[in-house]
């Protein structure tokens, strides 16, 4: 914890000033983000970029682990099910209904049944992250041009090669869309990780007597920004990972091209 802890007794030893007086909700919140100050109940320095960075790092770590684990589980499963054409009910319907489970309740359930700590919190977040990725991977593979797959089979590719070289690249946009949805949901839910002994940017929100309204609002703003950044960042990664032949997933061209294209194997082409 980077917060400078008070030595017994003296305020003079604390490395920060008490919070400035109320100047309006959003002004106070922004002030909380940029400058360190003493907590409302005293004795500890809170706020400022240092602490927010610390909490943010912990927040993103547990989120990252969860999303990576979800990808590792859901993408292979979705690819396999989609390639075989089986399991639509599982991959789509059950996944969809799973979104209705309130994440807070799920976390509490887990904590009650399985226990607290980094592993357990990451596990819950992984469970939360799997449905969108699974659904999107499955659907993405199913939507690949049958002609492309047949042509690849005709050329002599094995089933595994078809999945890796034909279906996966063509489905990558859809898969990424699912990963983005999951990542956003995970980062959002990690807000309540402190209830499972994992520090995160949700700490100020859960600690009103220490952080006050300024801290709560400030943390909320930072969480919103980080979630936005996650989405945009993954969008950039998606762009980089999309094979050139498919260009951007533009609403004008890609779906139309897939439908009209008679060229089965993806290769570099001009975008019309």
């Amino acid at each position: 914890m980077s917060a400078i802890l008070a030595q017994a007794g003296g305020d003079a030893m604390l490395g920060c000033e008490p919070a400035p007086a109320d100047r309006g909700a959003f002004v106070d919140a922004l002030d909380f983000i940029v400058s360190q100050r003493e907590s409302i109940s005293g004795g500890v320095c809170i706020g400022g970029p240092g602490e927010l960075l610390d909490l943010g790092a912990s927040h993103m770590l547990v989120s990252l682990v969860a999303v990576v684990a979800a990808i590792a589980i859901a993408v292979p499963a979705g690819l396999w099910l989609g390639h075989r054409g089986r399991g639509e009910f599982l991959a789509v319907s059950i996944s969809n209904v799973g979104r209705a489970v309130p994440s807070l309740a799920l976390l509490a359930f887990f904590i009650a049944f399985v226990g607290i700590g980094f592993t357990n919190v990451a596990l819950v977040l992984t469970l939360l992250a799997i449905p969108p990725i699974l659904t999107n991977t499955y659907v993405g593979v199913r939507q690949v041009d049958r002609e492309s797959v047949d042509a690849a089979r005709g050329v002599g590719m094995s089933e595994g090669q078809i999945v890796r070289r034909v279906e996966l690249p063509l489905a990558i946009a859809t898969i990424f869309s699912g990963i983005r949805t999951s990542a956003v949901a995970v980062v959002a839910t990690a807000t309540i990780a402190p209830l499972g002994n994992v520090q995160s940017l949700g700490n100020p929100i859960l600690e009103p007597q220490t952080y006050g309204s300024a801290g709560q609002l400030g943390a909320a703003i930072v969480i919103a920004l980080i979630t936005l950044a996650t989405d945009v960042g993954l969008g950039l990664v998606q762009r980089a990972a999309t094979p050139k032949g498919l260009a951007r997933t533009s609403y004008h061209t890609s779906e139309r091209r897939k439908r009209l294209s008679t060229i089965p194997i993806p290769r570099r082409t001009q975008t019309p």
């Binding site: 802890l5 008070a6 907590s39 109940s41 004795g43 500890v44 402190p194 600690e207 007597q209 220490t210």
Partner: peptide, 18 residues
């Protein structure tokens, strides 16, 4: 303790100080 306890002088910090 509840998350806030870690940073309160009437909670965890108090145990350390007093």
């Amino acid at each position: 303790g509840f998350p806030e306890c870690r940073q309160r002088t009437d909670c965890l910090l108090g145990l350390r100080d007093v």
